[in-house]
Write a protein that binds this DNA or RNA. Structure first.
Lengths: 141, 141
DNA sequence: CTGATTGCAAAGTCTTTGCATAGAG
DNA sequence: CTCTATGCAAAGACTTTGCAATCAG
């Protein structure tokens, strides 16, 4: 999905199309992965230097609320955001080298079933990170 | 495991036994679950009013490094801590009412296997939270 | 026009740090 | 006596908020 489409969708929900939102969406789409609020500001400012951080945070909150974007807290101090994608996927984060591996949500299907059946709990399948050691760092240690 | 034992262990590793550490450990042990730095300060101060927050953060970092305590980031803004327990367990957090349900780590055994086999990734089995909707809030919605 | 959105600066929250002092061993 | 740990205050990182000005529709 392209920035333009998101903007159209937003418009239909009663939100306005502003250059700031346009730029922010573009950067999030382009980065094709996780990006922090700070990184968004930096990148947008290369083309549009007057962007204010409040606008970024407010836009991000809007995008999360409308479900266009998923927040993930990797525990690094700042939340990362990414375009909401289907099928869902999760992330393996190496606690040594920081490497990130993407995992298909299918891996969690058995867990999901079990949580639903045994705990009557409907898990959210987005923003999900698992820490551990990647192959290389396991060998090193 | 009791506070006294932790303190003994710490001592053996070259750390000193101070009243602050004693109180902090006691509160963490007593609360029998998750507790934030702030909550620890509040509770300790009821008996020991002069406790400083730096001491709390420093002690928590020490306890995490030595493996006595596990940190969990539920994304609420502040990290929670709990005594390291075996067998490991995880948490289901209801995004509506905040209810927390404890889940045996066994639920994740299939996932763990898969991550190891297919991704050569050794996941950490502690500090792990899954957001979603609990039974009640599912019915409400 | 009118109200949503922005920019700015200030405040808020959680956590860390520098440095002198206290206190455990 | 020595060196770790504390207290305090200040700074740091990230995010939110109040308010007047701006701009989309």
């Amino acid at each position: 999905m392209q920035p333009t489409e998101f903007l159209k969708d937003l418009r239909q929900r009663g939100h306005r199309r502003t250059p700031q939102r346009e730029m922010i969406l573009q950067v999030i789409c382009e980065c094709d992965g996780h990006i922090t609020a700070d990184e968004i500001i930096t990148r947008v400012r290369k083309r549009y230097p007057h962007l204010n951080k409040s606008a970024v945070y407010r836009t991000l909150n809007l995008l999360v609320q409308t479900g266009f974007v998923n927040p993930t807290d990797f525990g690094s101090g700042s939340v990362t955001y990414e375009i909401h994608r289907d099928p869902h996927h999760h992330h393996l984060v190496c606690r040594e080298c920081g490497k990130m591996i993407e995992v298909d949500a299918g891996v969690f299907a058995p867990v999901e079933r079990k949580l639903r059946d045994e705990y009557a709990f409907a898990p959210d399948l987005h923003h999900f990170a698992i820490f551990g050691l990647c192959r290389k760092c396991q060998k090193k240690g």
